[in-house]
Structures are given as structure tokens and as C-alpha cells.
Write a protein that binds this DNA or RNA. Structure first.
Lengths: 353, 353
DNA sequence: GTGAAAGCGCTAACAT
DNA sequence: ATGTTAGCGCTTTCAC
């Protein structure tokens, strides 16, 4: 009992933090003058300013942002909602974003959906609660309604990566259809006609668009598209690894085996490479592969995977274009920005026939 | 003019968010009762509760955390301060942390120091301002004073990865000296006696400890340690790459060339592999390497690097032990926890002599 | 079980 | 140029 009481007192002692009132008392000026010095938005006599700054230093005072946020209805926090911050694709975006945000005096709250719609929903609610100024989201689901609620709460929303196909929100991402088609056409020009496709999560538009692009390339080249060529990967390495292993085992007994596989994201490409390696299937000799999204250490890994490399720098640049615009005027015109990606030629595709 | 006025009105309309007062008005109960329903910490009549919940739903009300935080002096935000979230080592930590924090209803603010002391300082100030409940930091510098100020502001500090050698803060990380020594001894038992060492940033204690461990192993085995065997890498891939390239070029003309290199973090190991590859130096045939810290895709990359793999799961587990303890009682006893790492045997070291 | 009211630390009118 | 004061939306005593 005594101990617990002691702790409580000690705790309170620790919690003691100087407030603007303390600065006001010590310096002899009113809190508004202190506030003006803090914000530098109104003229203050040089002498006064110095006295106040002295008091601030003496008390180790730093402003309580929470109180400030309550007044100004701004938090200078931006929520980034992605599938998994451990995916290098997203961690690169996070890093590049943070660099620019630091300069703009914003902080980044990172949230992982793990591709779960339910988790995404809870995250968004938390972000509304927290009063973040912006939400930058690569959405799991096409829940435009929830995003509209957010917008009505005065939070700016920027959709990245996965377009949800509505016009209320700015979007920055790839032209998945076009790029996937291009990548497939490359396989076809190299003589491949039986091509399998590793799919992402059903919900994600990127996944659908990439599949459509793939199919379009086949159809245009008078090749048949069949659902049997689809391998479910859910955008996850582990899932892809398992299903690809099964697929490749089956494929070895096919009369007309698949000669190439299109992986629709970076993580699943890793699962693909591992599966092939374990089954002693040589890339590109026994199997050709392409990837939508670059894998890490591209230049060290064998095979060097031919892929679409998403241009993260220009992506982040466009995100900032939107941020700066919306910070200035939340009603600014909404635009869909497609980034220019690169086609990276590796050695993972064999020319056949 | 007219447009701009329209925009301002429109903006205000957008900003409108239901408050507890609105719920109170609609339901007919006082704001205190609404608050009690919200928090569920006081008894409320079932009937009352239902009426209020109905109003909450009708208004799409969610509580304003900022106001709540101001009252309760808690934010449910935890700041994670690391060198670079794009380093897989840190992004793994961030992900694992976020998983556990989500369950505890905390959010994670991620900050990158870029190994800059100055940036670290600014970040910490911002985090104090923002009133985060915890700061989990892998410090650039040994600035115990600043961390003490933070603690005095009522913010719990947990140091990870890089110990600053004071006893005021809980620490979770590796026993760098011991592990580095072990790794070096492995090289020695495989017959290597001329071993170079790629250093991290001077300021980081991990860097120093790893170097001490390296040197201790040499000395104990009656091998000479020389400053000439040090390659400066600053824990950065690019920096390591450049200096290693120079080093290896020089080394080719040595009468007694170095036969092995110890890289003291994962990023620099990548720089090392790239440098060797470009100079057509084969690992392990021409050069043996070991790494403190696992590189990604270990099982795909050639060479498979013999390394100390830091056990992130147990690291995060220990961090949570501290979080839970400190959340319960900020004056809880402080402990230094060393995680048990794994020695991963690869094929990057040749047996010589 | 419920309501009234104080106040968390700050900003921004509005005074002077 | 500086001071006074009214809240921002919420929690929490203190009444009843």
C-alpha cells in the first residue's frame, strides 16, 4: 500500500512537464505573448522575445502538441495504410515519404492491413479517431463508402497502388493492365504459348487489372486463356510457394507443360523462385518467369528476373504533389496519376521454338 | 473571389464531425453519460446505453482522440526511431511490433534518423511534442541526457539494438561483443589469419562492440590486429561498396592478401557481395566472408553467407515485456535483455591451408 | 444511475 | 505590442 502510494506520487513527479503557463509565470508575460513567440505569427518586441525564450530554455519547455491540435484541428500526422511494411515495396515508399514529410514537419503513422479487410476497417477507424490530417492508403477492399466517411470527417485521402475505381479520390499508381500486357507480350514474342499466372488477392484491383492485361495479351495473340493456368497466391510469398510447388509438380507430368509463369507481385516471385529451386527446376532453362514488381537484390540473385519495376521515386513525388495541393486546398481538383514504370530485362526468359 | 468563398464554406461543411455534444443532444442524455457509455467504465442503465448507442450510430460519431488525449495525458501512440525503415532488419521489427501494438490498441509512428545525430535530435523533440507514450529507439548517439529529459517528461523509453551503456533505460538487443567474437573465431578455425573488418558508424555502440569482439578473437589467437584491416562502411551499403571496392583492388596486389572479410551489418554485406561480384572475385574461392546480421533471401542468394542471424521475434517479445511492464508501472525495474541469436552456417567461408 | 461543471494546454479573437 | 478570455472535445470529480 505504502509502496503503491509512493509510486503514484513518483509517477506524478515524473509526469511534470512545463506548460505555457509556467513560461508565462516565470517570464512575467502573458500566455498569449508566449504563444506568439512560440508560433512567430505575430510581432513581439525583441526584448520580450528574449526574456520568454530564456524562460522556455530554463524550464525545458516544449509545446504540448495535443492541446495545440485540439485547438487547431490539425495533428501533422499522416497515416500510411499498406498491406505489410515489411514488403520492400512498401517500406521503400514509407522511407521516401518520411523523408519528404520530415521536411514538411509531418510524422508518419504506419499501419499494416495484412491484406485483411476487417483489419483495414479497424485501422481506418483508429486513424479517424486520431485525427490524422491525411490518409495514404493502398486499399485491401473497394470500400469507397468508408473512405467517403473519412473525407467527410475532414481527412484528406490519397489512394496509392490499388485503384478502387471511383473518382472522388486522387490516385497514384501503375497502369496495371498495360504493364501486365506488355510483360505477357514479351513472353509471347520469346515463343511461349502455355503461360501460367500467379494471382494476387481477389479484392485488390491491381490483381484484377494485371490478370486482365495478361489475358488481353493472350487473346490478341490468338492464344487460349484458361482458368487452369491460374495459381492462387494472394500476394503472399508463403501462399504462392505452396501452390506453385503443387502446380509445378503436376506440370512435370503434363503432355504439353507450361513453359512460363507470370508472377503478379514481388513477394510471390520469391515464392516462385524458391519452389523452382527446391524442385531443381532451372530458370530459365526449364522454366521462364517474369514478375510484376521488382524483387530485392535483383543484381545479385540468379536468375535476374525480367520484370516491371515500379518507379517509387516518381510515385512518391506524385503523392507529394497531391499532399501539397490538398494541404493548401482540400477541395482541389482530383486527378489520377499513373507512374511511368520501367521494363527491366533480365535473363529469366528463354527463347523457345 | 466567389469561388474562394464557396470553397471556404464547402471546406467547413466537410470538416463537420459529430461530437459528444451532438450525441448528447440527440439522445437526450448528458455528455457525461455519453462518455460513460463510450468508455464503459461506469455503470449505465441498459436502456440508456441503447438509446445513446443508437444516436452514436445515427451520427456516425467517433470519439475525438485528440481531446481525449489532452484530458488523459495519453496518446496510445508509440514512436519507433530507427536508422532506416527500409533496412529489412528494422522493417521486420516494425512489422512485428505493429502486430502486437495493434492488439494493445497502440499505433506506431515510424521515424528515420538516417544515422544523423542532428535528425535524431529533431525527431525526439517532435515525439515529446506529440506526447507519445513510449519511444522505442535504436540510437545514433549516446545522448543519455536527452533521453533522460524525455523520461522526465513522462515518456517511457526503451532502447533497442544499440546500447548506450547507461542503466536508466531498459535495453533489448544482441551481445555484440560475444557474437562478433564467435564469428571471427569461426574464420580463424577455418585457417584465416588475415581478416579485414568493415566498420559501422563510430557513434553506434554496436559498431564498437563488434569491433572489440573481432579484435579480441584475433588477440586471443595470437593474431595481430591492425588498423589497416579496417574498412569504413558507416552501416551503409553504398559507402561500404565504394570503400570495399578500393580495398579489394589494393588487396589484389598485396604480397600477403587478406583472405577473409568480416562485415558488421547486413547492408554492408550486400555492398561487399556486389563489390566482389563486379571485380570477379569469387566467394568463397577467392575471398571468404561472414556477416553480422542476416541478409535477405539468404536461401536464394549465392553465396549463402555465414552469419549471425538476429532473432527478431524474441527481440520484439522482450520489447513487449518492457512495454507491458512500463505501461503498468513506469517506475518498474529496469533490465538489460540480450537476445539469443543464431549462428547460420552458409558456404561463404573456404577452409584454407 | 445520471447531470453539472471544472479544466487538460493551447490558439485566436477581441481588447487595450 | 501585449493582456484577457472564450473555447477546442473530452474525462472526471462532485453532487444529487
Amino acid at each position: 500500500m505504502i509502496l503503491s502510494s509512493y509510486k503514484r506520487i513518483h509517477r506524478r513527479y515524473l509526469m511534470k512537464k512545463a506548460t505555457i503557463k509556467d513560461v508565462s509565470d516565470l517570464s512575467g508575460y502573458s500566455i498569449s505573448t508566449v504563444s506568439r513567440v512560440l508560433n512567430g505569427n505575430y510581432p513581439v518586441k525583441k526584448q520580450t522575445k528574449e526574456t520568454i525564450l530564456e524562460a522556455i530554455n530554463k524550464l525545458h519547455f516544449t509545446r504540448n502538441s495535443v492541446a495545440r491540435n485540439l485547438r487547431t484541428n490539425k495533428t501533422n500526422i499522416i497515416g500510411l495504410v499498406v498491406a505489410d511494411i515489411n514488403n520492400p515495396y512498401y517500406s521503400k515508399i514509407a522511407k521516401a515519404l518520411d523523408d519528404g514529410l520530415f521536411k514538411r514537419n509531418y510524422s508518419l503513422l504506419v499501419c499494416n492491413t495484412d491484406e485483411s479487410e476487417q483489419k483495414e476497417c479497424k485501422i481506418l477507424e483508429t486513424l479517424i479517431d486520431k485525427g490524422v490530417d491525411f490518409i495514404i492508403i493502398s486499399p485491401v477492399s473497394k470500400n469507397a463508402e468508408l473512405l467517403r466517411t473519412i473525407k467527410n470527417n475532414g481527412i484528406n485521402v490519397i489512394i496509392i497502388d490499388r485503384n478502387i475505381g471511383v473518382s472522388d479520390f486522387p490516385f497514384v499508381g501503375s497502369d496495371d493492365f498495360k504493364e501486365a500486357k506488355k510483360l505477357t507480350e514479351y513472353l509471347i514474342t520469346r515463343g511461349h504459348s502455355k503461360i501460367a499466372f500467379i494471382t494476387g488477392t481477389q479484392k485488390a484491383t491491381t490483381s484484377q487489372e494485371r490478370l486482365f492485361g495478361f489475358r488481353a495479351a493472350l487473346v490478341e495473340n490468338h492464344l487460349t486463356f484458361s482458368n487452369e493456368s491460374l495459381i492462387e497466391g494472394l500476394y503472399k510469398e508463403e501462399m504462392a510457394y505452396e501452390n506453385i510447388t503443387k502446380f509445378l509438380k503436376r506440370n512435370q507430368h503434363n503432355i504439353q507443360p507450361y513453359t512460363a509463369i507470370f508472377s503478379s507481385n514481388n513477394l510471390m516471385t520469391l515464392g516462385l523462385i524458391k519452389a523452382a529451386k527446391e524442385l531443381s527446376i532451372s530458370i530459365p532453362n526449364d522454366l521462364s518467369i517474369v514478375s510484376f514488381g521488382q524483387i530485392e537484390l535483383q543484381d545479385i540473385i540468379q536468375p535476374n528476373v525480367t520484370c516491371i519495376k515500379q518507379n517509387i521515386d516518381s510515385m512518391v513525388e506524385l503523392i507529394f504533389k497531391n499532399i501539397d495541393q490538398l494541404a493548401d486546398d482540400p477541395t482541389a481538383t482530383i486527378s489520377n496519376d499513373f507512374i511511368a514504370n520501367s521494363f527491366l530485362l533480365g535473363n529469366s526468359v528463354k527463347k523457345i521454338k
